[in-house]
Each structure stands twice: as structure tokens, then as C-alpha cells.
Amino acid sequence: MDDAICLTYDISPDDFTRAGEASSDVKKKLKQMGVGPEAVRKVAIAMYEGEINMVIHAKGGEIRVEITPERIVMVLDDVGPGIPNVEKAMQAGYSTAPDEVRSLGFGAGMGLPNMKQYTDSMEIDTRIGVGTKITMVVNI
């Protein structure tokens, strides 16, 4: 599409303090573009949860965001352990996060369920020992 805007972010692993910077930037840009507040909120929450996951579970990765007048597509591509049981991971409350992550306020087992709840579609492509690619779409 001619009028698509693409943004790419490198997500560095183990840098919990900076986790969320990419989502924050996307949120700001969408607001500036005049995207409606409900869509901005959905994108911000879903991407932020995904970004946190990439920092705490994977070894970082890349997030690509494509913005068109109709929709916002987020592709979160990580180099990580993969998700052994996607069905379980999608259950609210199921978490494999270590205690250290819980003490930081995450690991409540709401990450993937939240991502699904706040997007119009979500696809998970995961390979054990290779990584996970999550594609989320929010319609405007």
C-alpha cells in the first residue's frame, strides 16, 4: 500500500528499565497522526505486553509496525526459547515467568491473554529453540 507507514524497533534483551520504549514511541506517533484514542490504547497495551515478553522471556528481537488508514499491524519477532504449549500460555493466569520477574510486577499470566483481548486478530508462530513471531492487527 502506498500510504503505509512502517516503523522498526530493535528490542534489547535483559534491559528491563528500557522495556516499553518502543511501545511508548508508537503510541506517541499514532496520537500525532490523529488515530482515534480507542485504537491507540489497544495498540499501546498489546504492543507493550509483547515488548515486555520479548525482554523477559526471549533474547530480544525486532518489532515492526505498519500503519495504514484501515489498520495497524504489529509483528513481534523474537529470538527466544519458543512457547512449548501455546494453548496453556493463552490461559489467563498461566505463567512460566521466574520469581524475579514477578517481583518486577509482571508474570501474572495475563500477557498473551491481554494481547488477544486488545487486538482484532493475533497469530502466534513459535518454534522451540528458535523463536516466536506474533502478528497482531488492530483495525482503525
Binding site: F16, T17, A19, G20, S23, S24, K27, A44, I45, Y48, E49, I52, A92, R102, L104, G105, F106, G107, A108, G109, M110, G111, P113, N114, Q117
Partner: peptide, 29 residues
């Protein structure tokens, strides 16, 4: 737990928390 906040929080909210790290601000943002 910030993920619980992200799941249930509404518009024009206040957040009460005992967690003190940058992710509290990000969640609020």
C-alpha cells in the same frame, strides 16, 4: 501486578500500587 492493571483498568483511572519501578510509569502511560 502490572499485567492485571493492563487487563482491567478503565479510562480516567488512578492506580494504587506498592511497586516502585519504571514499568509502573510505562503501564500508566
Amino acid at each position: 501486578m502490572m499485567s492485571d492493571v493492563l487487563a482491567f483498568s478503565k479510562d480516567h483511572s488512578v492506580l494504587l500500587t506498592g511497586l516502585c519501578n519504571p514499568q509502573v510509569i510505562r503501564t500508566a502511560e
